[in-house]
């Protein structure tokens, strides 16, 4: 872990891999430090922002003291998401992976996905699974409109579009689950560190 300066109210912890980020994010999220306002995991970093009730030195010590928790532990309860696997790019994904469409569905439903970080839009989580079972490139030409609830793949990630938006991910299915709902006390269905399972809708 390397800790980089970010003004008086934030520190950026940098790691060698996404797995390391997740391993450090889990204990930090589980035992938050009073005064820390935001903890934002990303591909190689965790940003901690804090208020004046805590010093930068205390936050630095807290970041450095986190004992990494490898796979297994989830932040919060496991989330199950029902998916209708009829996405427009399912055949293309199968072709890219040199498997049949059923195998794509089997790998997606058979993997234990973890929300590594969020971004792109409120409620959008970048999900990773051990062994990168469905690694495919983005579409060469992004779609100008992807409907809400679309389940996609890009790189080592799977993700679900919370609302309609432009998008370049390969779409393999669609869910009725509400990824972002401001009527809920906690609008985001998936928080960083959450474990997600996909189930095929019948």
């Amino acid at each position: 872990m390397r800790i980089l300066p970010f003004g008086d109210g934030a520190l950026l912890a940098e790691f060698g891999s996404l797995a390391e980020v997740l391993a450090h994010y889990r204990p930090l999220a589980a035992a938050s430090l009073p005064g820390v306002v935001d903890l934002v995991p990303a591909a190689r970093t965790i940003l901690a922002t804090f208020d004046a009730s805590v010093s930068a030195a205390e936050v630095r010590r807290w970041l450095q003291a986190a004992a990494p928790v490898d796979d297994g532990a989830a932040v919060g309860a496991e989330i199950t998401i029902e998916v209708d696997y009829s996405g427009e790019d399912l055949a293309e994904v199968a072709r890219l992976l040199k498997v049949d469409e059923r195998e794509v569905v089997r790998r997606h439903t058979g993997s234990r996905w973890t929300a590594a970080f969020t971004g792109f839009a409120p409620g959008f989580a970048y999900l990773v699974a051990p062994g990168d079972p469905l690694r495919v490139p983005r579409r060469e030409v992004p779609r100008t409109r992807v409907p809400a609830g679309s389940v996609g793949l890009a790189g080592e990630f799977s993700g679900i579009y919370p609302g309609a938006s432009p998008g370049g991910w390969q779409l393999i299915g669609r869910t009725e689950a509400r990824l972002w709902d401001t009527a809920r006390e906690e609008p985001a269905l998936i928080r960083p560190g959450a474990v997600v399972r996909f189930r095929e809708a019948r």
Binding site: D38, V40, T118, G119, F120, F124, R191
Partner: peptide
């Protein structure tokens, strides 16, 4: 609404 960055806000 500080403190919501982890969910993308």
């Amino acid at each position: 609404r500080p403190g919501c960055a982890a969910v993308g806000l």
